[in-house]
């Protein structure tokens, strides 16, 4: 089924396309010419070890830091040099690394913050959908964000991102620090969003096994460069990927 979707998606122009992006932190080069494409309706994952530059790529797409060379193109528009808040207002939503929910605000207020730039008319519908996706958030809606468990906070971070009605959802390590059962719940929710609403997802993950099983296509990043790419199944089957990222992670 994934192969069908990939082929369908491949036909049009990519929703998000990163071309030869190089990002520096001062003199240190973090990304060495990255090329990736994300097509409408796909789940694309980027796996790699700590410090490979996955999160830097995610942040570069969001414009903070900006790429020194190369281009980030979203729906045909060059967004490389736009400020973060302008990029995020273009139907792109992000669940940032470390979740970054608003700790002293309630769950409800957090969700409201996500919908801040959106037409208020959609608010009730969107809220209902988020609550259907993550029923725990409905139970916890009056609770302060900082008092939620890690899994609930991740759900809230994704829910908050969804409240802006995105076409492209960027997720930075949603499985970080969560129990396997919760990780499964979250990945099921992402799959559900993709299948029922056709939401395009770009997922940065260290949890290679779950990420590659979920994703239609995947990229492997090593030291700021893409070393492998292919469908999720292909990558899962490859010996280099198995030995580098899946030893001990596949059970």
């Amino acid at each position: 089924m994934s192969a069908v979707m990939v082929e369908e998606g491949m036909k049009g122009a990519p929703l998000l396309s990163v071309r030869g992006v190089e990002t520096f932190y001062g003199k240190i080069q973090a990304l060495r010419g990255i090329d990736i494409d994300v097509y409408e309706g796909e789940i694309v994952t980027m796996i790699g070890a700590n410090g490979a530059g996955k999160s830097t790529l995610m942040m570069t797409i969001c414009g903070n830091p900006q790429a020194r060379n190369g281009q980030v193109i979203y729906r045909g528009e060059d967004i490389t040099r736009l400020p973060t808040h302008t990029i995020m207002a273009k139907s792109i939503a992000q669940s940032p690394e470390g979740r970054r929910i608003f700790g002293r605000m309630t769950v409800m207020e957090n969700l409201q913050m996500g919908a801040l730039l959106q037409d208020e008319a959609y608010f009730d519908d969107d809220l209902r959908q988020v609550f259907e996706l993550f029923p725990r958030l409905r139970e916890r809606q009056g609770q302060r964000g900082g008092t939620l468990s890690g899994g609930e906070q991740q759900m809230l971070a994704i829910g908050r991102a969804l409240m802006s009605r995105p076409r492209l959802l960027l997720l930075d390590e949603p499985s970080l620090g969560l129990a396997p059962l919760i990780v499964k719940q979250i990945f099921d929710a992402i799959r559900e969003l993709n299948q029922s609403q056709g939401l395009t997802v770009f997922l940065v993950e260290q949890n290679a096994f779950h990420a590659l099983r979920l994703a239609h296509r995947g990229y492997v990043m090593v030291n700021g460069a893409i070393t492998m790419s292919g469908t999720g199944r292909e990558l899962l089957a490859r010996e280099e990927v198995r030995s580098a990222y899946l030893e001990g992670g596949a059970h």
Binding site: T86, M88, P96, G103, Q112, M113, L117
Partner: peptide, 24 residues
Amino acid sequence: LPVGRAWEALREDEIACRSLGINT
């Protein structure tokens, strides 16, 4: 109002604010 909520969100987390499209 949105501006007041954005103030409070800014107090909590500036990076999260920007990632929600708020012009900090």
